[in-house]
Design a protein around this nucleic acid. Sequence first.
DNA 1: CAGCGTGTTGAGGA
DNA 2: TTCCTCAACACGCT
Length: 277
Amino acid sequence: MPELPEVATVITELKSCVLNKPVKQVKVHLDKVLKNTNVKQLNDALVNHSFVDIKRRGKYIIFCLSNGLFLVSHLRMEGKYFFEAKGSQFDLNHVLVEFLFQDCDQLNYHDTRQFGTFHLFNRYQFENARELNKLALDPLDQEFNHQAIFNKGHKSNKKIKTFILDQTNISGIGNIYADEILFASKIHPETLAKNLNLSQYQLICQNATDILKKAVEMKGTTIGTFTFKKDHTGGYQHFLKIHGKKGKQCQSCNTTIIKKKINGRGSYICEKCQIQR
DNA sequence: CAGCGTGTTGAGGA
DNA sequence: TTCCTCAACACGCT
């Protein structure tokens, strides 16, 4: 489900309902989602403390705690958060973690495929965490610039789609927006990163910023069953031009859109607009 | 029944 | 060492 716009949307929603509420208890129904901690440590860290801020780095969600600790959450493929107000009825099926607040509201972490992760860090660990420090800037960052991306890309033997999906090159892009960005840039996803010139990287970066910014405004894309809240779906799905459109006509040239696997990822391409070189 | 998937990582090869 | 590819993770849906 989540690429940068979806994670940003989840964070906005979470901030509207869970900030500054003291935690009563954390229940964990699947131990392996806790990567560097355990139920006892998590409860010691959270009980009688609250989330004072929630931030994003790449596709990671960072819960900043009132005691200076950090709970870092990654949704991977299917992680979702469901806020349940006091007294509401909910299904615990596929809920892996329950955060119970002292006011009896609660936040449930739901993940059918169980790929999501939680890390608990103190400030030193947080500032030195490899998972976070290796992330590149994302396309919405003020300092994001195509020159730095080109400097890496022109030495890379990867296909450009694989290159922009690599979070150490650009963070925040996933399989859906990668297809959209390359289509908007009229670049074939299998073009080798080293064969693109500076102005093509400028185009990719500008389209990445434009598309992600718009997707954030639209509260992300919904495909299949994803909802960040049960009664709400993302609006960017209506703006997708290429991803998921196999067999349909390209909006700009009417050519039939094809699908092929690129480094294991389903990829949608207009072979007329996106010339391979 | 087989194939597929919004993400990442570690193993293994070059 | 570095760079790259791919299986694996687990489950529901087509």
